[in-house]
Simulated assay, not measured.
Amino acid sequence: MLSVIAVFSVCFPSLCFLFPQAALKKTPLFDFHRQQGGKMVEFSGWSLPVQYKDSHISSHMHTREHCSIFDVSHMLQTKVHGRDRVKFMESLVVADIAELKDNQFKAAGFDVDLEFLDEALIALQGPSMSQVLQKGLKDDLRKLTFMTSTLATVFGVPNCRVTRCGYTGEDGVEISVPKGRVVELTEKLLTNGEVKLAGLGARDSLRLEAGLCLYGNDIDETTTPVDASLVWTIGKRRRQTKDFPGANIIVPQIKAKADRKRVGLVSSGPPVRQHTPILSPDGTVIGEVTSGCPSPCLKKNVAMGYVDAAFAKNGTNIQVEVRKKAVPAIVSKMPFVQTNYYSG
């Protein structure tokens, strides 16, 4: 029956001003967030918690050391099914969909249907996620590896799609839940002392420490996988068939190399934010920061951005312009903090 389940995260922070406060969309957990002390903010047309009673740093570190729940119900969930589902998906992405195994989008055929799901989505992220969630599952969670999914009853809530993935760099899952029972499931998870609620603030600093891109900031429709150091996402077969969107530009770029490249940056002093100019040692503008924040784990400023290819090598000394002053920085390997995805 259903053979492809895709979760599309389309976040356009720069477009938030288009949505007046009265028109903000609410997730099924909106009232629960407010009851729990969530500070609600406008994000991409949604009202979402930026943090709770704990500080941003405390919430960030709790996720790294224990586990946290994030409401990600603003992300569009879709089911793609029908005999032409593989062909349809491969018309949208550069990955080799046909080679994926069951519960990783494997399918074949000649017709397709797209269904938008009206369900809630929560992410449980952190090193103790497995021990917390296993208590509410019949199946052995060790069988569920990174980027695979399964249908399950979770703490008595049936028809949940559990996918081992996330946006923090930690071991975690995203759980698609019938929206009428998401509060119930969230409350049950919170009865475990390992679990706390976390908001957008911690989600952003966690994903940046993990070197993960935010669409609209670090990648967009003008960015190629080569520019963004994401060539690994292009399936080997797709490189040969050259039948994916933008292949006429991207495939030649793989061999010729791009003129610019997404890199990690580490600096001390004042925080480095989006749109900060990146400078060569002699003060020439060579790029721009796309995301940046102080790292709670490293106690340094971390950022990512695009620079001229000549300055993209790890260890290169460059500068960033903060408050009209040049601050020393170093091009650094990402992720900044080691990731802990579960591979079995």
Rank of each mutant, 00 (worst) to 15 (best):
Ile5Ala: 01
Ile5Val: 05
Val7Arg: 03
Val10Thr: 07
Cys11Arg: 05
Pro13Leu: 06
Leu15Ile: 00
Phe19Ser: 13
Pro20Tyr: 07
Pro20Cys: 07
Ala22Glu: 15
Ala22Arg: 14
Ala23Pro: 00
Leu24Met: 10
Thr27Met: 00
Thr27Val: 03
Gln36His: 15
Val41Pro: 03
Ser44Met: 00
Leu48Phe: 05
Val50Lys: 05
Gln51Asn: 13
Asp54Ala: 14
Ser55Trp: 02
Ser55Val: 03
His56Met: 12
Ser59Asn: 05
Met61Gln: 13
Cys67Leu: 00
Ser68Asn: 06
Ile69Asn: 02
Phe70Ala: 01
Met75Leu: 11
Lys79Thr: 13
Gly82Phe: 04
Arg85Ser: 15
Arg85Lys: 14
Phe88His: 15
Leu92Gly: 08
Val93Cys: 10
Asp96Trp: 09
Asp96Met: 09
Asp96Arg: 10
Ile97Gln: 15
Ala98Arg: 13
Phe105Ser: 05
Phe105Gln: 06
Asp111Ser: 14
Asp113Thr: 13
Leu114Asp: 01
Leu114Tyr: 11
Phe116Val: 13
Asp118Cys: 05
Ala120Val: 11
Met129Lys: 01
Met129Asp: 00
Ser130Ile: 08
Gln131Thr: 14
Leu133Gly: 06
Leu137Arg: 10
Leu137Tyr: 09
Asp140Ile: 04
Ser149Arg: 03
Ser149His: 06
Thr150Ser: 03
Leu151Pro: 00
Thr153Val: 04
Thr153Ile: 00
Val154Cys: 04
Phe155Met: 10
Gly156Asn: 09
Gly156Ala: 09
Val157Ala: 06
Pro158Gly: 09
Thr163Arg: 11
Cys165Trp: 08
Gly166Cys: 02
Tyr167Gln: 06
Glu170Leu: 00
Gly172Ala: 03
Pro178Ser: 05
Pro178Phe: 02
Gly180Phe: 02
Gly180Tyr: 02
Arg181Glu: 14
Val182Trp: 06
Val183Gln: 14
Val183Asn: 07
Asn192Ala: 11
Leu200Phe: 05
Leu206Met: 05
Gly216Asp: 05
Ile219Lys: 05
Asp220Pro: 10
Glu221Arg: 12
Thr222Cys: 02
Thr223Gln: 02
Pro225Trp: 05
Asp227Gln: 11
Ser229Trp: 01
Ser229Leu: 01
Arg238Gln: 14
Arg239Gln: 15
Arg239Met: 15
Gln240Tyr: 08
Thr241Asp: 10
Lys257Glu: 11
Ala258Phe: 01
Arg262Tyr: 00
Val263Pro: 02
Val263Lys: 02
Val263Gly: 03
Gly264Glu: 08
Ser268Phe: 01
Val272Arg: 06
Gln274Asn: 10
His275Ser: 07
Ile278Asn: 09
Pro281Val: 10
Thr284Asp: 12
Val285Ala: 12
Glu288Ser: 11
Val289Asn: 04
Thr290Met: 07
Ser291Thr: 14
Cys297Ser: 15
Leu298Gly: 12
Lys300Ser: 09
Met304Thr: 15
Asp308Ile: 09
Ala309Arg: 11
Ala310Thr: 11
Thr316His: 04
Gln319Lys: 15
Gln319Tyr: 07
Gln319Val: 00
Gln319Trp: 01
Glu321Gly: 03
Arg323Ser: 12
Ser332Glu: 12
Met334Phe: 02
Phe336Cys: 09
Asn340Ser: 13
Ser343Gln: 12
